[in-house]
Amino acid sequence: MSDPVRVAVEGRVGTLELDHPPLNLLTDPVRAALRAALDDFRARGVRAVVLTGRGRAFCAGADLRDEAALGPEAARARVDADEALCAALAGYPGAVIAALNGPALGGGLELALACDLRVAARAATLAGVGVALGLVVSTARLTRLCGEAVAKDLLLTGRTVGAEEALALGLVAAVVDDAALPAEARRWADTVASRAPLSVQANKAALVHCARLPLAEAVAWERGEWARLQKTRDHKEALEAFFAKRAPEFTGA
């Protein structure tokens, strides 16, 4: 059996392409390959990651035949494995961009929501199908990302939204023609990869850490981070580059 995930690194950007036709269903080998590649990217200092699907789907979620064959215990282990994968995406010390080339359903939608940003091809469709299976999926992430009104609409009905509606709902940051998706995702990844890595990491961490803090505490945290970053070499480089009217070269220190 061929590798279920195609992995590539070009410059500071890594690409993870699910290749488990026809629907890129999430299986243990797919999860393991994604986790291993993310660990490798982290070790190599890859600053931005693009997660996408090969063929007609982004990811249609879990393989239900597994569960039918193995029973509820295996299903429970699968839920934990899915969350471990999502946590690895969300906690990656750089930006992760989901390039939605086709359907992102159920666990596939949750994968996309664990990324920092989503860009979509016109062929993309998104649906929180967990409710149709008698489950609860994406309530935590979708509510935070798009608000309660959107989360209730999509997760109580399980309805499918197309790329344009996903854009209007704030679910995806951009929509492009199908053929332009890889270049568009790459453009977003290059942008974040060119930014100061410690700032990107601090912003990601603050969005999680400050989410439920009283305003005064959140502001104090942000001020502390500002003072910490203000002393870094990358900030001095940014100032020098600004006054010299050249592009900064960040090292992540």
Binding site: R144, L145, C146, V192, A196, A202
Partner: peptide, 30 residues
Amino acid sequence: GVKVGLMASNVQLARLVPEARARDALLTGR
């Protein structure tokens, strides 16, 4: 902030717009 190696407007932006958009603006600096 990410263009100059600092962090600012994270807290207020995260409170004014849904997090998907806050991440977009804060991580790209666009």
